[in-house]
Design a protein around this nucleic acid. Structure first.
Lengths: 147, 147
DNA sequence: ATGCACTTTCCCGTCGTGGCAAGGTCAAGC
DNA sequence: GCTTGACCTTGCCACGACGGGAAAGTGCAT
């Protein structure tokens, strides 16, 4: 099976398959006499696993860990669960961050008449009366989770 | 005022001030005889506007538009509001996407016993019966970068 | 005169992906 | 044969929004 077939079968572009090989996420594919990469169903299965993981938002590092566990018959499901829950927690943090930004901006927009005149609470909000601390973040950054 | 002072006063790092100048988001700063950049309060005000906009997740393109409107005395608040609401809508879309990923993964994690045995619904979910569909859009929005 | 804090420009790395270029390989049609 | 077209190869550049760091210049205090 050539790379294009594997791409269609797995939902991962040929470009990305080569990239994953380059960063060691998938083993180096065998070669046909033409020097074209050669794939079998197991390879496609692995690629599909990667694609599903990406679809769930996992970063490559975690996918690497998941792949190790996947092919480990002696894994503990607790290890898998820990990775999954850590990722969920990260996403929840990001969601909370975006939620806050969206809410603040939505509130500003609600206060704005949206007519032909220049007066605008959104602009005033962006100018910020927040002139105080130079280093204080107005939102919670992804690093500082409130546990 | 040198760039370090402007950075502290605005909350934008010196590095970023130079970057914003390079991409034309702020005008080229004047220079002292030493060739050091020279800033005044108006420059700091503008930088603070940019920082607040970034804190609300606006991408640079939209900030560019906001800056134009900010310095336009004949703006309509409706233009500002339109930009703000478009951005809110974008964020809501991203939030919904992440919400969905987090929920799916959370459901898989709930179904996983998380014990010492290898059997794991998360892994099974990642293997996925979902064959070669097209890839979903990138999950990580530019607004959620660590800095 | 030496040290230190600040500045300058420039280049590289992030992360996951798309795009393009220049060339190799193979089957089909003329 | 010879061309066309579809596939493959490697490789480099780009994105957004920065951070890091090198190598060199500037300014002030000791």
């Amino acid at each position: 099976m050539q790379i294009g077939q594997a791409a269609k079968a797995s939902g991962v572009t040929a470009k990305m398959i080569r990239h994953y090989e380059a960063i060691g996420l998938v083993p180096s594919a065998g070669r046909q006499p033409s020097n074209y990469r050669d794939y079998d169903d197991a390879d496609v299965h692995r690629l599909r696993f990667i694609r599903r993981s990406r679809d769930l938002g996992f970063p490559m590092d975690r996918i690497r860990d998941l792949l190790k566990l996947w092919s480990d018959r002696h894994r503990s499901s607790s290890e898998v669960k820990a990775i999954a829950l850590a990722h969920v927690a990260e996403m929840e943090t990001r969601i909370a961050h975006m939620r806050e930004m969206a809410d603040v901006l939505h509130a500003l927009a609600d206060a704005c008449e949206g007519n032909g005149r220049p007066e605008c609470p959104i602009i005033r909000g962006l100018e910020g009366s927040d002139a105080g601390g130079p280093r204080m973040p107005a939102y919670l950054p992804p690093g500082s989770v409130n546990h």
